[in-house]
Design a protein around this nucleic acid. Structure first.
Lengths: 114, 114
DNA sequence: AGCTTATATAAGCAAATATTTATATAGTTA
DNA sequence: TAACTATATAAATATTTGCTTATATAAGCT
């Protein structure tokens, strides 16, 4: 079975993006289901612009999809991106992060959007 | 088949280290055979301290082994490190970098050590 | 021992990155 | 249309990173 390869330059850029705990957790979360910005703000306890800028970087590489639903914008992993197969084994080895969403629900902090 | 997981914190740290093109290329090279510092200096055209500092970071996480042979120190991927299985699928998807060593040989720039 | 070669460490600096506050845009609702 | 909510963008700033030069350490050679 011939292993598909990725350009070194591109691989490094993607790994650098994933090498930030916030973005890595985001990607693991939205690999399973779409999340909106306000959820991330709650989960990570960073300012909204900070969250938006992380998402922007992921979007600039095409790693995520955004879908507007009314005033909310939902982000999810773009599984048809050419580099998804490169990232998949990484994401698969990460522990499930959905408990973070569950926590929000329990706190009742999970906002109107979801 | 249960997928082994890695702590998020640790995963992010490792990905950040691999998210540098120099270190990523180093790791791909020494996944196959040990290389010494002087080779890296030739390959990457950075100062020797710069190379040593990259290697130091990899060593601090236990990702590489160092073996002294006389005045040279050879570095190789530490395959018995607990996180090697996390990195392996990444390294496997990278294009082979051994042509860089071949180039050194052809130039005759490949130093005494090897 | 003294010189040379290979590597590591320390210190300084420049570039890149991530955060914040302030402001703009876009959609929703009264 | 005016007020409100969600998100994006811009600008300022703090932190981190990676490089360089200078210096230290360690091994080999004469």
């Amino acid at each position: 079975m011939l292993q598909t390869t990725i350009e070194m330059e591109k691989a490094a850029v993607i790994l650098k993006l994933l090498g930030d705990k916030t973005r890595l957790t985001m990607m693991k979360l939205i690999d399973k289901q779409a999340c909106c910005v306000c959820e991330f703000v709650e989960i990570f306890q960073f300012s909204q612009p900070s969250i938006s800028q992380h998402l922007r970087k992921l979007k600039d590489l095409g790693l995520v999809n955004e879908e507007r639903k009314g005033q909310w914008i939902f982000y999810s992993v773009n599984k048809s991106n050419e580099y998804y197969s490169f990232m998949k084994p990484i994401l698969d080895q990460l522990p499930d992060q959905n408990y973070k969403l569950k926590e929000l629900e329990e706190q009742g902090t999970r906002i109107s959007c979801c």
